[in-house]
């Protein structure tokens, strides 16, 4: 059967299919390995028990909220000591506590952040106030 105004209809359909299959074209022939955040900084290697502030699963998905809470507690409430679930105490500080172990921002933070589509250097906006660690490359 005849398709009326076939020129317009087919152009429209081509645009539709093209737009909705962008991911397939964009990634074609590209291997995208998942990120591999490095945990081999000198400080971590010297730790007897390699344990972060929160258990692995929680820190992985919830570190941004923890940092946000720390920010509020330190900057607005003047608190500095964080008591973890296992009773250990930490100094609530991104630069002195987090980055002490994870001194490898490009090998650690940026790995997942960039992969997850956060804009490098802009989001997360930690480093608009904090000083990014100088890494010895």
């Amino acid at each position: 059967m005849k398709i009326y105004d076939a020129r317009y209809v087919l152009i429209g359909l081509a645009i539709f299919v093209g737009l909705f299959t962008i991911p397939f074209w964009y990634n074609m022939g590209r291997a995208v390995p998942p990120p591999d955040p490095k945990l081999d900084t000198p400080v971590i290697q010297q730790m007897a028990v390699k344990q972060c502030v929160l258990p692995l699963a929680e820190i992985r998905t919830g570190h941004m909220q923890l940092l946000n809470d720390w920010r509020t507690w330190v900057v607005r409430d003047g608190l500095r000591t964080y008591v973890a679930a296992d009773g250990k105490t930490y100094n609530m500080s991104l630069q002195n506590t987090c980055m002490d172990c994870h001194s490898n921002k490009t090998q650690f933070c940026d790995q997942c952040h960039i992969y997850a589509g956060l804009e490098a250097g802009t989001v997360p906006y930690c480093w608009t106030c904090h000083i990014a660690p100088k890494e010895n490359q």
């Binding site: 991911p23 964009y26 990634n27 960039i114």
Partner: peptide
């Protein structure tokens, strides 16, 4: 699309 494209 940030989940479906790399680099974003």
């Amino acid at each position: 699309l940030r989940f479906f494209m790399e680099p974003v």
